[in-house]
């Protein structure tokens, strides 16, 4: 290697780290400044940390409600997906049945369906079902839209479960569902963990569905809340920054704590 190559490479790594983090830092900074000194002073955090903006958006602009709604929606979606996708993934991976290829192709196609292209019919259907402006009207379609990815990922995970393990259990007289719950699920726990995190992440990030389905302010999740705050108080930068931080901090923390699970989940399918 030429003596200059390595420093240049390090510089490239550093520039991209700045590209990655600078906007995040900017938000943290803005969230802790008051209106008056927002654009004054050095680019360092105030000390002691000034949490006034957080207090304000949390209790006055309804962000405690938005946050709670995001939790309810994302957790519900995650539970529904965890109850359905592993079963389906197992069936595709380990059971031979008529129509397997066709049904799997049907799910595969769903992998790429853009939510906006479904909305034209989905909206009317939800209206007919009385689900417009209800949490269920967001939770069920969102779980459904995440189903293809989840089933696909679970099939990949289930393929690695040794057949002998399943056979040993069913030979002992256990039904397939008992085997699934008692033997298979414990083995694929890391895969379930990844699935859980990814589904939670995606449903927390979702914007379009809650935007069109929910009208009542107290039902809206944090993505919709943050976007509307931008419109309502166009100049309250400290407040918007605090709101944005509340919206993404849980995800960043989850990711940093459970990096390995996250990465495994997101790259599922890329390797196979």
């Amino acid at each position: 290697m030429k003596p200059t190559t390595r420093p240049i490479q390090t510089l490239v790594l550093a520039i991209f780290a700045i590209y990655s983090l600078a906007p995040v830092y900017l938000v943290v900074l803005a969230s802790m400044r008051s209106e008056a000194d927002l654009f004054a002073g050095p680019l360092t955090l105030p000390w002691p940390l000034n949490l006034e903006n957080f207090r304000r958006v949390w209790s006055e602009s309804g962000f405690s409600t938005y946050f709670w709604n995001s939790v309810v929606i994302s957790v519900s979606v995650t539970i529904i997906v965890l109850l359905t996708a592993p079963l389906a993934g197992f069936a595709f991976a380990k059971i031979r049945f008529r129509g397997r290829e066709v049904l799997f192709a049907l799910f595969l196609a769903g992998l790429v369906v853009p939510a906006p292209s479904v909305i034209v019919a989905l909206y009317g259907n939800l209206q007919a079902l009385g689900m417009i402006d209800s949490r269920l009207g967001v939770i069920l379609p969102q779980a459904a839209l995440l189903t293809p990815f989840s089933v696909f990922m679970m099939r990949t995970v289930m393929q690695d479960v040794p057949d002998e393990l399943i056979e040993a259990s069913t030979m002992d007289g256990a039904s397939l569902i008992r085997t699934f719950v008692g033997v298979v699920l414990p083995v694929v726990r890391p895969g379930l963990m990844s699935l859980m995190l990814i589904v939670f992440l995606f449903s927390w990030q979702e914007y379009l569905l809650p935007l069109v389905v929910l009208q009542t302010e107290t039902l809206k999740p944090i993505t919709v809340g943050a976007a509307s705050l931008q419109g309502r108080y166009g100049v309250d930068y400290g407040g918007i920054a605090a709101a944005g931080l509340i919206a993404f901090a849980p995800l960043v923390l989850l990711f940093l704590l459970l990096q390995r699970s996250f990465v495994r989940g997101l790259s599922a399918g890329a390797v196979k």
Binding site: A88, A91, G110, N125, L140, A144, T147, F180
Partner: peptide, 19 residues
């Protein structure tokens, strides 16, 4: 297999495939 598939399939059909 069909019982295992049913929950995911129904959800998917109702809110994605049928629309």
């Amino acid at each position: 297999a069909y019982w295992f598939l049913a929950p995911a399939l129904i959800l998917y059909l109702a809110f994605v495939a049928v629309p």
